[in-house]
Simulated assay, not measured.
Amino acid sequence: MEPQIITFRESQLSLQDGIAEFTHLNSAARNALSMGLRDDYIELLARLQSDRSIRCLILTGSGGSFCAGGDLKSLRERQASTDPEIRSPDAMRRRLQAVHRWVEPLRNLEIPVIAAVDGPAYGAGFALALAADFILASSRASFCMSFAKVGLVPDAGALYLLPRVVGLQKAKELMFSARRVGVEEAHTLGIVQAIHAPDELAAQARAFARRFLNAPREALGMTKGLLNRSFETPYSTLAELECYAQGIATAQPYHLDAVEAFLRGEPARYDWDRS
């Protein structure tokens, strides 16, 4: 079956066999997080949230770059504007609020999200990769919390996401120094799940995504939602939410069929090692 291709402003969405692959296409600007690409993400999420046939999402770049971060050219144009409303601090506050209105839903999608990072993932591009559940990287990938280099505070969810992956102390070091993190160090820190050759990354990301095609969508979605809240949720509250989630999971056809198959001695439909 041929993939369904949907072209947006600065990106492309491919849908095939339950896997969605979203590719940043403005390689001339190293796939910077422009206003156009932000609008593309909003459309992407609207489509995915209404299509339950999609079981996994892959985010990737093009031209040897994942995403170089925010569009500094547009920030300069904002500062140069003669309209005080456009260059006001409140305008920037609202601009970032608009970013969080799609970054948070991306992080909380009830399907696994894989970031396939080839080349730089800098600034907001690094934060975008961290919003995924898994980061697969090429051997030439690199990461940088570059905000301090241009006198900015980490944004696009970076302040929330990075400490949860590397710990608070290491997050401070990476954000204060704004230094480049090579792919091997990123793997050691737990940022990167696996490293692949650049020409194998796309195929490896699709193979990784295919592992989830037979997974219990509802159970994994609820597990992800609970884990995403686990650091700031009291034990008693998370325990109560766990009970509600398990009540829903045990009523799903997937669970009932899996129990019957197990009792008949049949292999599990979802087997990570076998797949």
Rank of each mutant, 00 (worst) to 15 (best):
M35H: 14
A261M: 06
H255M: 09
S88V: 02
G167W: 12
L238H: 02
G61D: 06
R217E: 10
G123L: 05
A219G: 00
F176P: 03
A197I: 10
A46I: 07
L57A: 00
R76A: 14
R217I: 12
R9T: 15
R55H: 12
S53Q: 13
A137S: 10
E260M: 08
F212C: 04
R47G: 12
L130A: 04
L241E: 15
G225K: 10
F126D: 01
E77F: 13
A171H: 02
Q79A: 15
R87M: 00
R229Q: 14
V113R: 01
P120F: 10
G70D: 10
S139T: 15
Y41C: 08
L96T: 09
G18E: 04
E185P: 06
A91V: 02
Y122P: 01
E242V: 12
A20D: 03
I191R: 07
S62C: 02
V103F: 12
R47L: 15
Q4R: 14
M35E: 15
S275E: 06
I5A: 07
R78D: 04
A124T: 02
E218R: 13
C243P: 00
G265Y: 03
T188Y: 09
E85H: 10
P163F: 11
A156L: 04
M145I: 11
I42N: 13
R264H: 13
A91I: 00
K172P: 00
A207F: 04
S275T: 12
W102F: 15
M222V: 02
R101A: 15
Q193K: 10
A197T: 12
A129P: 07
Q169Y: 10
M222D: 11
Q252D: 11
V165M: 09
M1D: 12
G63M: 02
S50D: 15
F22K: 01
E77C: 10
K73G: 14
A121W: 08
G70K: 06
A158M: 14
R269S: 08
D17T: 10
D39N: 14
A98Y: 10
S53Y: 00
G265R: 02
A132Y: 08
S230Y: 09
G190E: 07
L168A: 13
R107C: 07
M145F: 08
F22C: 04
L48Q: 09
G18Q: 02
S236N: 09
S62E: 01
E240Y: 06
E104D: 13
G119E: 05
G69K: 05
S11Q: 01
E200M: 11
S138Q: 08
R206Q: 14
